[in-house]
Amino acid sequence: MGEHEGIIDVWSIETFDAELRGNLDSHGDVIHGYMLTSRRQWLEREASDRTMPYPENPYAGEFLRAKEHITRLMEARTIRAWHYTRMTDEETDALRQDGIYPSTLNNIRSRFAAQVAAGVFSQEIADRLFADSPYQSDQRDSRSNKFWMVSHPIEIENGDVELLLKSWGGEAAYFWQQDPSLQNLLTRIGKPRVLEITVPLVHSRHSYSAAEAVVSTFGRTLGCRPDKHAFDLYTYRPLGPAHILCVHSEGELNFIAMARGYPAGFVNMNLGR
């Protein structure tokens, strides 16, 4: 099973347990047929004038049922995921001790209050950051009680994670912040970090997305060329300290090598596609 026993990397066939692999093998003909047909149809359409309706894949129904079956298997499994953020050393120490908690208005206020207590910024600035947070808007319900991650590691220079690493406090602090002085302040607090986390999918609502990624990874072993199906996911329950495999911080070798040498065996299958 590799370095992390019982934990699945949705991008690595070597981490799939025997039951999961056996069920994928049993659907191998359908997965292979669907993916090859899908790619052939796409290439034919790209070479055409694209005015004809997209043809139906004859394997589509069986392929969907196979994914639904793999989804049920994934609901009982734990995957490795990644969270990109900027944190102080004190926050990192607390994370290692207490674990992960989904975002709420109260813990956002507590983060701001801790920086006031540490003398990093004033109560006035904390009040302004709190007032400007998206959690004070109609986005509160959609953002609250979730801790977001991504299924595949991402290079630290990637634009998708640039602001998460650049600005302290996450989107709760920087997302709607228009004051240049406060924007600058947030970039001077803490260090960029990548959290490596184990996530029981029973604590999320993303088992289907995990199944899509697993099926895609399996398909590549059959000679197919599917999308890697990277996906965002969240936990709506706290994750204790044992779920934090590592905190990678700016300047460390594995932080620098994220998604291009670390973790071992990871290859970004969509590059150059």
Score class of each variant (00 low, 15 high):
L64G: 06
N107V: 02
A47K: 14
Q139F: 12
L164P: 02
T78E: 06
Q139K: 12
G169W: 00
S151F: 01
L24S: 01
L73G: 00
T92H: 05
S151E: 03
E171C: 10
D49I: 12
T37G: 04
L95M: 13
M74V: 02
A118Q: 11
A113T: 10
I100L: 15
D25A: 13
D49V: 11
M149T: 14
I70W: 04
K67E: 12
D127T: 06
A117N: 12
L165P: 01
L163C: 10
Y54G: 02
V150I: 12
E62P: 04
R143D: 03
A118Y: 08
G33E: 03
R65L: 15
E56K: 14
E90Q: 13
F121H: 05
Y135K: 01
S38V: 03
N23S: 08
L73R: 00
R77F: 00
E68W: 09
V150G: 01
S103N: 11
F112V: 03
P153V: 03
S110N: 12
K146C: 05
S122P: 03
A76L: 12
A117P: 01
S110F: 08
L36I: 10
D29Y: 04
E62S: 14
D98L: 11
R50Q: 15
R77M: 03
N57V: 02
K166Y: 09
H152L: 11
D98Y: 09
N107K: 05
A114Q: 14
A118K: 11
S133V: 04
S48L: 08
R65D: 14
L24N: 00
W148E: 02
R86C: 05
N158D: 15
D138K: 08
N145W: 08
M52K: 15
Q136F: 01
P53I: 05
E91I: 07
W42C: 07
E171M: 11
D49F: 11
R65M: 15
A117W: 00
M87R: 13
Q123T: 10
Y54W: 14
T71S: 06
P153C: 06
G170Q: 01
R50Y: 06
N145T: 08
E56I: 10
Q123P: 00
Q115S: 09
E75K: 14
N57E: 05
E124W: 05
L165R: 09
R39W: 08
I154T: 14
S110C: 09
E124S: 10
F112M: 09
F121N: 03
N23G: 07
E75Q: 15
D138G: 04
T88R: 06
P102K: 01
W82P: 05
G119S: 07
D89T: 11
A66R: 00
S122I: 02
S103G: 11
R143G: 07
M35T: 11
S137R: 09
S144G: 10
L163M: 13
S142I: 13
P153H: 02
I108L: 13
T37K: 12
